[in-house]
Amino acid sequence: MDDQKQYAKLFNDIDSQALISLGIILASVILLTIVSQRGLNWLANRLHGQVRFRIFALVPLTRLVILIVALAIAVPIMIEPSLRNMVTLLGAIGLAIGFALKDYVSSLIAGMVAAVELPYRPGDWVDIEDTYGEVKHVGMRTVEILTPDDDLVAVPHLKLWDTAIYNANNGKTSLQCVASFYLHPEHEADWVRKALRDVALTSAYLKFDQPIIVVAEEKPWGTHYRIRAYPVDPRQQFLFITDLTVRGKQVLSRAGIKPALLPPDMALEAPDAAGGRRGLRH
Protein backbone atom coordinates (compact mmCIF):
# COMPACT_ATOMS: atom_id res chain seq x y z
CA MET A 1 0.00 0.00 0.00
CA ASP A 2 2.90 2.30 0.89
CA ASP A 3 4.70 1.35 -2.33
CA GLN A 4 1.60 2.18 -4.35
CA LYS A 5 1.45 5.60 -2.75
CA GLN A 6 5.15 6.06 -3.34
CA TYR A 7 4.81 5.35 -7.10
CA ALA A 8 1.69 7.48 -7.33
CA LYS A 9 3.75 10.30 -5.85
CA LEU A 10 6.26 9.91 -8.61
CA PHE A 11 3.88 11.74 -10.90
CA ASN A 12 2.44 15.12 -10.09
CA ASP A 13 -1.30 15.55 -9.99
CA ILE A 14 -2.31 15.91 -13.58
CA ASP A 15 -5.13 18.41 -13.38
CA SER A 16 -6.80 20.15 -16.29
CA GLN A 17 -4.29 23.01 -16.22
CA ALA A 18 -1.39 20.57 -16.51
CA LEU A 19 -3.15 18.78 -19.37
CA ILE A 20 -3.66 22.06 -21.20
CA SER A 21 -0.01 22.98 -20.68
CA LEU A 22 1.13 19.61 -22.01
CA GLY A 23 -1.23 19.95 -24.96
CA ILE A 24 0.14 23.38 -25.77
CA ILE A 25 3.72 22.10 -25.52
CA LEU A 26 2.94 19.14 -27.77
CA ALA A 27 1.18 21.32 -30.34
CA SER A 28 4.03 23.84 -30.25
CA VAL A 29 6.63 21.12 -30.76
CA ILE A 30 4.76 19.71 -33.75
CA LEU A 31 4.16 23.15 -35.23
CA LEU A 32 7.70 24.42 -34.67
CA THR A 33 9.21 21.20 -36.01
CA ILE A 34 7.11 21.29 -39.17
CA VAL A 35 7.72 24.99 -39.76
CA SER A 36 11.47 24.83 -39.09
CA GLN A 37 12.01 21.63 -41.10
CA ARG A 38 9.97 22.70 -44.09
CA GLY A 39 11.17 26.30 -43.95
CA LEU A 40 14.87 25.41 -43.75
CA ASN A 41 14.54 22.74 -46.45
CA TRP A 42 12.64 25.17 -48.68
CA LEU A 43 15.28 27.84 -48.21
CA ALA A 44 18.25 25.51 -48.68
CA ASN A 45 16.81 24.00 -51.84
CA ARG A 46 16.73 27.45 -53.39
CA LEU A 47 20.31 28.28 -52.53
CA HIS A 48 23.59 27.14 -54.02
CA GLY A 49 27.11 26.53 -52.88
CA GLN A 50 28.30 26.36 -49.30
CA VAL A 51 25.35 28.31 -47.84
CA ARG A 52 23.02 25.53 -49.01
CA PHE A 53 24.91 22.92 -46.99
CA ARG A 54 25.12 25.13 -43.91
CA ILE A 55 21.36 25.60 -43.87
CA PHE A 56 20.76 21.89 -44.47
CA ALA A 57 22.98 21.11 -41.47
CA LEU A 58 20.67 23.22 -39.30
CA VAL A 59 17.64 21.00 -40.05
CA PRO A 60 18.30 18.10 -37.61
CA LEU A 61 19.99 20.41 -35.10
CA THR A 62 16.95 22.69 -34.92
CA ARG A 63 14.66 19.73 -34.32
CA LEU A 64 16.92 18.40 -31.58
CA VAL A 65 16.96 21.78 -29.84
CA ILE A 66 13.15 22.04 -30.05
CA LEU A 67 12.77 18.55 -28.53
CA ILE A 68 15.21 19.18 -25.70
CA VAL A 69 13.54 22.47 -24.80
CA ALA A 70 10.09 20.85 -24.92
CA LEU A 71 11.20 17.97 -22.67
CA ALA A 72 12.81 20.40 -20.24
CA ILE A 73 9.48 22.21 -19.94
CA ALA A 74 7.16 19.16 -19.97
CA VAL A 75 8.95 16.78 -17.58
CA PRO A 76 8.64 19.01 -14.46
CA ILE A 77 4.92 19.35 -15.17
CA MET A 78 4.45 15.58 -15.03
CA ILE A 79 6.90 14.54 -12.33
CA GLU A 80 8.65 16.05 -9.40
CA PRO A 81 12.20 16.25 -10.82
CA SER A 82 14.02 14.89 -7.75
CA LEU A 83 16.97 12.50 -8.08
CA ARG A 84 14.98 9.59 -6.69
CA ASN A 85 12.08 10.16 -9.04
CA MET A 86 14.34 10.50 -12.05
CA VAL A 87 16.25 7.30 -11.24
CA THR A 88 12.98 5.41 -10.82
CA LEU A 89 11.52 6.77 -14.05
CA LEU A 90 14.65 6.24 -16.15
CA GLY A 91 15.03 2.73 -14.72
CA ALA A 92 11.49 1.83 -15.76
CA ILE A 93 11.97 3.34 -19.20
CA GLY A 94 15.31 1.56 -19.62
CA LEU A 95 13.69 -1.80 -18.80
CA ALA A 96 10.94 -1.26 -21.35
CA ILE A 97 13.44 -0.22 -24.01
CA GLY A 98 15.75 -3.10 -23.27
CA PHE A 99 13.04 -5.67 -23.90
CA ALA A 100 10.67 -4.25 -26.47
CA LEU A 101 11.92 -1.16 -28.29
CA LYS A 102 15.64 -1.68 -28.38
CA ASP A 103 16.22 -1.04 -32.10
CA TYR A 104 13.69 1.72 -32.32
CA VAL A 105 15.18 3.68 -29.45
CA SER A 106 18.70 2.89 -30.58
CA SER A 107 17.81 4.56 -33.89
CA LEU A 108 16.39 7.56 -32.04
CA ILE A 109 19.56 7.93 -29.98
CA ALA A 110 21.70 7.46 -33.10
CA GLY A 111 19.58 10.18 -34.70
CA MET A 112 20.55 12.54 -31.89
CA VAL A 113 24.21 11.59 -32.28
CA ALA A 114 23.87 12.19 -36.04
CA ALA A 115 22.45 15.65 -35.38
CA VAL A 116 25.52 16.52 -33.32
CA GLU A 117 28.34 14.64 -35.06
CA LEU A 118 26.97 15.27 -38.55
CA PRO A 119 28.21 12.12 -40.32
CA TYR A 120 25.61 13.09 -42.95
CA ARG A 121 23.33 16.04 -43.46
CA PRO A 122 20.81 16.96 -46.15
CA GLY A 123 22.59 17.69 -49.42
CA ASP A 124 25.43 15.23 -48.73
CA TRP A 125 26.09 12.33 -51.09
CA VAL A 126 26.51 9.23 -48.97
CA ASP A 127 27.04 5.54 -49.40
CA ILE A 128 25.60 3.42 -46.58
CA GLU A 129 25.95 -0.31 -47.17
CA ASP A 130 24.64 -0.63 -50.72
CA THR A 131 22.71 2.59 -50.91
CA TYR A 132 24.29 5.59 -52.66
CA GLY A 133 22.48 8.87 -53.13
CA GLU A 134 21.76 12.35 -51.89
CA VAL A 135 20.55 12.80 -48.32
CA LYS A 136 17.16 14.44 -48.59
CA HIS A 137 16.03 14.38 -44.99
CA VAL A 138 17.53 13.47 -41.64
CA GLY A 139 14.60 12.33 -39.51
CA MET A 140 14.36 11.23 -35.89
CA ARG A 141 14.73 7.54 -36.68
CA THR A 142 15.86 7.35 -40.28
CA VAL A 143 17.85 9.20 -42.90
CA GLU A 144 16.15 9.46 -46.30
CA ILE A 145 18.42 8.98 -49.29
CA LEU A 146 17.35 9.69 -52.85
CA THR A 147 19.24 7.37 -55.19
CA PRO A 148 20.18 8.30 -58.77
CA ASP A 149 17.41 5.86 -59.83
CA ASP A 150 14.90 8.13 -58.04
CA ASP A 151 14.21 5.65 -55.23
CA LEU A 152 13.78 7.16 -51.79
CA VAL A 153 15.48 4.84 -49.31
CA ALA A 154 14.94 5.22 -45.56
CA VAL A 155 18.02 3.98 -43.70
CA PRO A 156 17.74 3.73 -39.88
CA HIS A 157 20.28 5.80 -37.96
CA LEU A 158 21.08 2.54 -36.17
CA LYS A 159 23.58 1.82 -38.97
CA LEU A 160 25.72 4.58 -37.51
CA TRP A 161 26.90 2.24 -34.73
CA ASP A 162 28.43 -0.52 -36.81
CA THR A 163 28.46 0.44 -40.51
CA ALA A 164 30.99 2.48 -42.47
CA ILE A 165 29.38 5.61 -43.84
CA TYR A 166 31.02 7.04 -46.98
CA ASN A 167 30.30 10.74 -47.31
CA ALA A 168 31.45 12.00 -50.71
CA ASN A 169 31.27 15.74 -50.04
CA ASN A 170 30.87 16.02 -46.24
CA GLY A 171 28.87 19.25 -46.19
CA LYS A 172 31.00 20.92 -48.83
CA THR A 173 30.62 21.58 -52.53
CA SER A 174 33.58 19.46 -53.63
CA LEU A 175 32.73 15.93 -54.71
CA GLN A 176 35.25 13.88 -56.62
CA CYS A 177 34.02 12.10 -59.72
CA VAL A 178 35.81 9.35 -61.58
CA ALA A 179 35.43 8.52 -65.25
CA SER A 180 37.03 5.23 -66.28
CA PHE A 181 38.48 4.20 -69.65
CA TYR A 182 39.62 0.65 -70.43
CA LEU A 183 42.12 0.61 -73.27
CA HIS A 184 43.86 -1.97 -75.36
CA PRO A 185 47.51 -2.28 -74.19
CA GLU A 186 48.99 -1.03 -77.48
CA HIS A 187 48.82 2.74 -77.29
CA GLU A 188 50.98 5.75 -76.44
CA ALA A 189 50.25 6.18 -72.76
CA ASP A 190 51.68 9.69 -72.39
CA TRP A 191 49.50 11.01 -75.21
CA VAL A 192 46.40 9.39 -73.69
CA ARG A 193 47.16 10.90 -70.30
CA LYS A 194 47.43 14.42 -71.78
CA ALA A 195 44.39 13.98 -73.99
CA LEU A 196 42.26 12.82 -71.05
CA ARG A 197 43.46 15.76 -68.97
CA ASP A 198 42.37 18.10 -71.78
CA VAL A 199 38.99 16.36 -71.84
CA ALA A 200 38.56 17.26 -68.15
CA LEU A 201 39.89 20.80 -68.61
CA THR A 202 37.36 21.48 -71.34
CA SER A 203 34.32 20.24 -69.46
CA ALA A 204 31.72 22.91 -68.75
CA TYR A 205 31.06 21.32 -65.34
CA LEU A 206 34.66 21.40 -64.09
CA LYS A 207 35.47 23.01 -60.76
CA PHE A 208 38.82 24.71 -61.17
CA ASP A 209 39.97 25.11 -57.59
CA GLN A 210 40.39 21.35 -57.24
CA PRO A 211 43.02 19.20 -58.95
CA ILE A 212 42.52 17.04 -62.03
CA ILE A 213 44.35 13.73 -61.83
CA VAL A 214 44.62 11.12 -64.55
CA VAL A 215 45.53 7.73 -63.11
CA ALA A 216 46.79 4.88 -65.29
CA GLU A 217 46.87 1.32 -64.03
CA GLU A 218 48.21 -1.62 -65.95
CA LYS A 219 46.00 -4.72 -65.95
CA PRO A 220 46.38 -8.15 -67.56
CA TRP A 221 43.82 -7.18 -70.22
CA GLY A 222 45.11 -3.65 -70.97
CA THR A 223 45.29 -0.29 -69.23
CA HIS A 224 42.70 1.21 -66.95
CA TYR A 225 42.65 5.03 -66.99
CA ARG A 226 40.69 7.12 -64.53
CA ILE A 227 40.05 10.84 -64.68
CA ARG A 228 39.57 12.15 -61.15
CA ALA A 229 38.06 15.63 -61.14
CA TYR A 230 35.40 17.70 -59.37
CA PRO A 231 32.20 19.27 -60.75
CA VAL A 232 31.11 22.79 -59.81
CA ASP A 233 28.09 21.41 -57.93
CA PRO A 234 27.80 17.88 -56.45
CA ARG A 235 24.38 17.56 -58.10
CA GLN A 236 26.10 17.71 -61.49
CA GLN A 237 28.18 14.57 -60.81
CA PHE A 238 26.42 12.22 -63.23
CA LEU A 239 26.26 14.83 -65.99
CA PHE A 240 29.93 15.54 -65.39
CA ILE A 241 30.94 11.86 -65.56
CA THR A 242 28.83 11.42 -68.69
CA ASP A 243 30.42 14.45 -70.32
CA LEU A 244 33.93 13.18 -69.52
CA THR A 245 33.10 9.69 -70.76
CA VAL A 246 31.44 10.77 -74.01
CA ARG A 247 34.12 13.26 -75.00
CA GLY A 248 36.94 11.01 -73.77
CA LYS A 249 35.66 8.20 -75.99
CA GLN A 250 35.44 10.56 -78.97
CA VAL A 251 39.05 11.71 -78.55
CA LEU A 252 40.40 8.19 -78.06
CA SER A 253 38.40 6.79 -80.92
CA ARG A 254 39.55 9.58 -83.28
CA ALA A 255 43.15 8.79 -82.35
CA GLY A 256 42.57 5.14 -83.31
CA ILE A 257 43.02 3.81 -79.77
CA LYS A 258 41.09 0.61 -79.28
CA PRO A 259 39.16 -0.22 -76.11
CA ALA A 260 40.24 -3.26 -74.12
CA LEU A 261 38.13 -6.33 -74.55
CA LEU A 262 37.67 -7.81 -71.13
CA PRO A 263 37.03 -11.55 -70.79
CA PRO A 264 33.33 -11.93 -69.86
CA ASP A 265 34.05 -13.62 -66.52
CA MET A 266 36.32 -10.74 -65.46
CA ALA A 267 33.71 -8.17 -66.45
CA LEU A 268 31.18 -9.94 -64.26
CA GLU A 269 33.51 -10.35 -61.30
CA ALA A 270 34.91 -6.84 -61.05
CA PRO A 271 32.31 -4.23 -60.07
CA ASP A 272 34.68 -1.44 -61.16
CA ALA A 273 35.16 -2.96 -64.56
CA ALA A 274 31.42 -3.40 -64.96
CA GLY A 275 30.95 0.34 -64.41
CA GLY A 276 29.08 -0.19 -61.17
CA ARG A 277 28.03 2.64 -58.90
CA ARG A 278 31.21 2.48 -56.81
CA GLY A 279 33.21 2.37 -60.02
CA LEU A 280 31.94 5.83 -60.83
CA ARG A 281 33.46 7.36 -57.76
CA HIS A 282 36.43 5.26 -56.71
Binding site: A195, D198, L201, T202, A204, V251
Partner: peptide
Protein backbone atom coordinates in the same frame (compact mmCIF):
# COMPACT_ATOMS: atom_id res chain seq x y z
CA UNK B 1 37.93 27.03 -77.77
CA UNK B 2 36.91 25.10 -74.66
CA UNK B 3 36.67 21.96 -76.75
CA UNK B 4 38.56 18.66 -76.61
CA UNK B 5 40.84 19.89 -79.44
CA UNK B 6 40.51 23.62 -78.82
CA UNK B 7 43.44 24.03 -76.42
CA UNK B 8 46.19 22.47 -78.52
Amino acid sequence: LRHSYGLQ
